[in-house]
């Protein structure tokens, strides 16, 4: 399959999945966009009531949405090949397309959230600079590649280990508290920060907050670290898929 055909197939899978999910209706499409926007407003209202520090509630919302994408994206990606096994047992379909297509829905939710967040910041007089928006887009993209990398490996491993999704559920529950979502990383002694940063969502959440809420840019070294993390996760994922993928039809 040529690369343009692969992209065409990925697009068709994403489009038809979206259409099926929302019954092909315009109201369904609007609802899919409104849902993350509505959740954003609900969370902001509740946090405004609970927390007096305006920066904290924004940081909390940024952390929660990015985490939600990570948790939902990896969950969908992990079962992607198993859910579509009837395809690659009868046709030669590039497996990565099935994995990427499965992550599309959480990705759309995160994209809508990102737009709503920027609009909200602008509305309350804290409009982020173009550079900050660019950095945030880069972090979202990094998170997407990390989710894809994890899913490439996990989806093919799930064909062999059918309780991997339950194990991953437990990991993500623990991971929610390992990532500085509900607490600032500053309360952790600095000598332990490195270990927190090994958990991929941590640098992305921290850097996004720094760029969008605090209005600063993380250091160049921090970006290099993030890039290395993305490349390692994506590379490992691709390696596992390349190794186990050819026998995927026999594992189902």
């Amino acid at each position: 399959m040529t690369s343009s055909n692969s992209i065409g197939l990925a697009w068709t899978l994403i489009r038809t999945d979206f259409k099926t999910r929302f019954h092909g209706t315009f109201s369904g499409f609007i609802w899919s966009l409104l849902k993350p926007a509505a959740l954003f407003l609900v969370l902001m209202s509740v946090f405004s009531f609970l927390f007096k520090d305006p920066a904290y509630k924004l940081q909390l919302v940024v952390g929660l949405f990015l985490w939600d994408f990570f948790a939902e994206g990896t969950k969908c990606g992990l079962t992607a090949l198993h859910a579509k096994s009837f395809l690659f047992r009868k046709l030669r379909v590039p497996l990565w397309i099935l994995v990427v297509a499965a992550i599309a829905n959480p990705f759309i939710t995160m994209t809508v959230f990102s737009v709503v967040l920027v609009l909200f910041l602008t509305a309350i007089g804290q409009a982020p600079s173009l550079a900050a928006i660019g950095l945030f887009a880069f972090y979202c993209l990094s998170m997407t590649f990390i989710v894809i990398g994890f899913s490439l490996a996990a989806s093919v491993l799930f064909l062999k280990y059918r309780d991997l999704n339950q194990v991953w559920d437990m990991v993500t529950q623990a991971g929610f508290f390992l990532a500085p979502i509900i607490y600032p990383l500053g309360i952790v002694p600095e000598k332990f920060h490195f270990y927190f940063y090994v958990w991929p969502p941590t640098p992305i959440i921290e850097f996004s907050r720094t760029a969008l809420v605090s209005g600063h840019a993380p250091s160049l070294l921090a970006h290099v670290y993030l890039l290395v993390e993305v490349v390692v996760v994506l590379g490992l994922g691709a390696m596992v898929l390349k190794r186990m993928g050819p026998r995927a039809a026999e594992l189902v």
Partner: peptide
Amino acid sequence: PILDLGVGWNPELDAVDNVYLIGGMMGLS
């Protein structure tokens, strides 16, 4: 390969969308 007819059909979609879906899986652009 045509090893099975209708592999990957989505019953919730119409014929046109299914043609795109299956045609794409069979390697058509």
